[in-house]
């Protein structure tokens, strides 16, 4: 079961690398967050009460992500998707290669199954790769959320769970950072007329 979930999460992460439309990518990331929340809720029945609180917070986070980013996309409508520097198959190949390499380099670190560990590392690496290879500011935010989803997935799998204060603190931090990033995205769009991060290259030495 966890193997299938891990592969699903990786597939959704790779989808963020290749999809063209921002709204599609938001649905993908929100789905990914929702899957993790549902896995946590399913686990919560035979874990502590603190774990249930964390699981509910993950669910709220998934809903918040979809709502905030969806609202932001409506306020920053682009005539057409931003043309990427790299073609989608190239981006996919790069992300997959880096994820496979990273998963191979990280030793076993105590999650119940190898597939969970690989999925965790892959999600973090694919998320950061998305930040690098995608030009749109909103896609860079989504990349960070994918990476954070990797952490959240591992946290649900850790024997005994992560300390609740850390779990909730991380979720709170992510929500705040997402809010700030969304405000930046909208301001950048208003100032530059585009959500293309390549316009942000004026500062050089």
């Amino acid at each position: 079961m966890t193997g299938a979930v891990g592969w699903l999460l990786i597939a959704l992460a790779l989808a963020v690398i290749v999809v063209r439309r921002r709204s599609t990518a938001i649905v993908v990331v929100a789905t990914q967050s929702l899957v993790i929340a549902l896995v946590a809720l399913a686990e919560a029945s035979h874990r502590s009460g603190e774990f249930m609180s964390s699981a509910l917070a993950l669910l709220a986070k998934a809903i918040f992500i979809a709502a905030v980013l969806g609202w932001s996309v409506r306020r920053t409508r682009q005539d057409h998707p931003i043309t990427e520097a790299l073609a989608a198959p190239v981006r996919l190949a790069v992300a997959a290669a880096i994820a496979i390499t990273a998963a191979a380099l990280v030793p076993r670190f105590g999650l119940p199954s190898l597939s969970e560990e690989h999925a965790t590392v892959a999600l973090v690496v694919i998320g950061i790769t998305a930040v690098i290879v995608r030009k749109a500011t909103l896609f860079q935010v989504l990349g960070l959320l994918v990476a954070e989803n990797g952490i959240a997935f591992a946290a649900t799998a850790v024997a005994g769970g992560m300390p609740m204060v850390i779990d909730l603190g991380v979720i709170f931090d992510v929500v705040i950072v997402l809010s700030v990033a969304t405000a930046f995205h909208e301001r950048i769009f208003r100032e530059f007329g585009s959500g293309d991060a390549t316009v942000l290259r004026g500062l050089r030495d």
């Binding site: 990280v106 670190f109 105590g110 999650l111 965790t120 590392v121 973090v124 998320g127 950061i128 930040v131 860079q140 935010v141 990349g143 960070l144 990476a147 954070e148 990797g150 952490i151 591992a154 946290a155 850790v158 024997a159 005994g160 769970g161 992560m162 300390p163 991380v170 950072v177 700030v180 990033a181 930046f184």
Partner: peptide, 25 residues
């Protein structure tokens, strides 16, 4: 915002790797 958040996510992964290995919840 983007570069430091990405960096801190990697740091958090490192913390989680250590914590999971410790088996001391």
């Amino acid at each position: 915002l983007i570069l430091t958040t990405a960096g801190l996510t990697v740091a958090l992964l490192g913390i989680l790797v250590f914590y999971a290995s410790a088996h001391d919840p």
